[in-house]
Amino acid sequence: MKTDGTPLIGILTARKSEGTIAGNGPLFINIQKKLISLKSQSFVFTPEDVKDDYIYGYFYSTEENRWKKKSFPFPDLVYNRIPFRTSEQEEKSQWLFSRLKEKKIPFFNPCFIDKYELYQLLKGDHILQDYLPNTILVQGHNELLDFLMGFGGIYLKPTQSSKGKGIVRIRMDGPSGIQLDGILKHETYSSFTHFWEEWNEELLKKRYIAQEEIRSAEYEGKRFDFRILAHANHDDYTLSGVGIRLSQEQEITTHIPSGGRLVPYQLLKSKEHDEFFQTIIPSVGQLLSEYFGYFGEFSIDAGLSKTGRYYIYEVNSKPMSFDEEEIEKEKIENLCRLFLQLIEESS
């Protein structure tokens, strides 16, 4: 804790290629406002801003309604919001993570998650394995063809992407044809071999997983998913909020930037849904922290099949903002509570 006794939280982000600060500005401002009300401080910084004994950071001046730069001592805790996988892998970022460990400064969340690594991790858990769609790493023509034939329809997802980017669905179309649908792509191939010839370089170079297509339960004739937000609380993980995302023009993803629609959870709320959330959240949180390093928050994309079975599709280490104001408010409350809790536990 700083010499004046005020807890100091550093929010870590990255720079865009043209040098400006990236990240979720409104989130950073809301965190700062909440922390001020809790007699604490925060600042935003990038790995390039870190010197040996101090950090150049940015704080939001509510009086002047703008960001201002000043030097800060090393914070009591770092909240990792680096928004790009490439930035997180850079030498400067990795050096900073090592430096924080040396200084025994707690930080979360430690990293982005590779989709196949996540699948293997969850598959090893006796509770979570029941909620996973069948998944393989795409490695060759024959294996992928067998997988597609087994399910009739599969999703192909880059292992290192988020927000639904790069996802396509392929389905058998007649005895040998293939129908491919993406957010903006719609193609038909006369055979799987023709599909493979066009796609194999992309699938192998970028590392994709193939996942069985789950025929999703519907609301008002459209498929829906759950977006589940969770935060750590001492040695446990608790639910901060649930949003429902409904597909609209396209059925590939329910993400709002790709045309999904927001539906209040209250409209679909049930005892079974709530029990599912309470079952998976602690197990996912503890597994992530044991395997990757401390996770203070995460979100889960999950769904319900037409047959009434629950599935976990995705876990996000850097949850996007929720469009539901009450969930976003709860997120800020829980984050700031967690910051101060961790600082107290580490001091």
Rank of each mutant, 00 (worst) to 15 (best):
K51F: 08
F28L: 02
A14R: 01
K33A: 08
D52C: 07
F43K: 00
S37G: 11
S42F: 05
P7L: 02
D53E: 13
S42P: 07
G10D: 06
N30S: 11
L8C: 08
V50R: 04
G23W: 02
P26W: 10
L12Q: 00
D52V: 09
N30M: 07
D49I: 10
S40H: 04
K39A: 12
I55G: 03
D53N: 15
Q32H: 07
S40L: 01
L27R: 04
I29Y: 01
L35W: 01
K39D: 14
I29L: 07
L35R: 00
T6M: 15
Q41V: 05
Q32W: 03
I29N: 04
V44C: 00
I11R: 05
K51G: 08
D49L: 11
K33T: 08
S42C: 15
L27Y: 14
F43T: 00
N30D: 14
T20Q: 12
A22K: 09
E48F: 11
K34I: 05
Q41I: 02
S37Y: 08
Q32N: 14
S17F: 12
K33G: 04
G57C: 06
A14N: 13
K34T: 02
G25E: 13
G10A: 12
Q41D: 10
L8R: 02
G19F: 12
V50G: 03
G57W: 01
